[in-house]
Design a protein around this nucleic acid. Sequence first.
DNA 1: TACGATCTGTATGCATGCTGTCAATATTGC
DNA 2: GCAATATTGACAGCATGCATACAGATCGTA
Lengths: 164, 164
Amino acid sequence: MSGVNERAHKAAHRTPDYTSSGPGDLSVHRMPGHFIRRLQQVAVRLFGDCVGPELTPVQYAALCAIAQTPGAGQAALAALIGYDRATIGGVIDRLEQKGWVARSGSPEDRRLNLLSITPDGQAALARAAPAVLAVQDKLLEPLDPQEREAFERMCLKLLAHHLG
Amino acid sequence: MSGVNERAHKAAHRTPDYTSSGPGDLSVHRMPGHFIRRLQQVAVRLFGDCVGPELTPVQYAALCAIAQTPGAGQAALAALIGYDRATIGGVIDRLEQKGWVARSGSPEDRRLNLLSITPDGQAALARAAPAVLAVQDKLLEPLDPQEREAFERMCLKLLAHHLG
DNA sequence: TACGATCTGTATGCATGCTGTCAATATTGC
DNA sequence: GCAATATTGACAGCATGCATACAGATCGTA
């Protein structure tokens, strides 16, 4: 195990939650919102462990979306992956700084920053893809195939309800 | 619907994901890690909508843990709810600034900041509790009782595997 | 008892994330 | 054609989160 998020991880080892909390527990440890928070924490740590520090989950999602939707503006990109317009700016900044993404103005609409992936960006994406897929597998590792299918189906159901 | 996270929420409405993405989609929209990320986003937005801006999810969890574990230091508190030692400091700062939490040194171990909840903090906690419970319910609203049980069980299974 | 290992809180730096605001630019209604 | 409106990207501000490093304090042990 790498040192990513070592403190929070070690900390979690010291709590008895998640393995034996009793039915009378009214604290945060019984709340789905807290589960999701901790799962997000786990997923980010796994991503760092498997993919490495050169690409964050957010940057991967953005790079992926840019590759699949060439010529989109920042707002359109944010819409695609559910980010905020204010957040995506900094993400693109960092991807641009690495030379993986290029901004170019649009002649038709001078407000837009048309985004495109560079060859280096393509290479980085291809390099990271296997590890990213491995993360998804490790994440759901303790679930059997039926449970995985059910988990993903319920996640999609929740997202469709709250976002759709 | 309140205006919390309006931009990302409106953005999400414009994407066809989560309702009709085809089986050949290799993008981020098929990845459990991305689902969890979006669910976390939804949960935070629901929390803001139901509880209000005076208490964040993180602050609620911390306040809750302090109320249940009086006399714990910051590191112990962080371990209880899975935060980082470096993060909890700022959270406590803000709770202390609101007058809901008090720091006091320990005579036995002068490194420790013993944490305790104030009467105002107790009141804030009691005020927020119903809304926080409502958030959990709204979050899993689209799932029937069996699905909710299964979802929570699988979350706990995942967390026990990755943290335990 | 001295000393090294460990623990605690803090500070810094980086990366998300969201709110509110703003200027520039398009679009629409009249 | 022009005024009201909407959209876009940028910026400031606040709140997580984590890695790293540091100083003070404690603990285990030789």
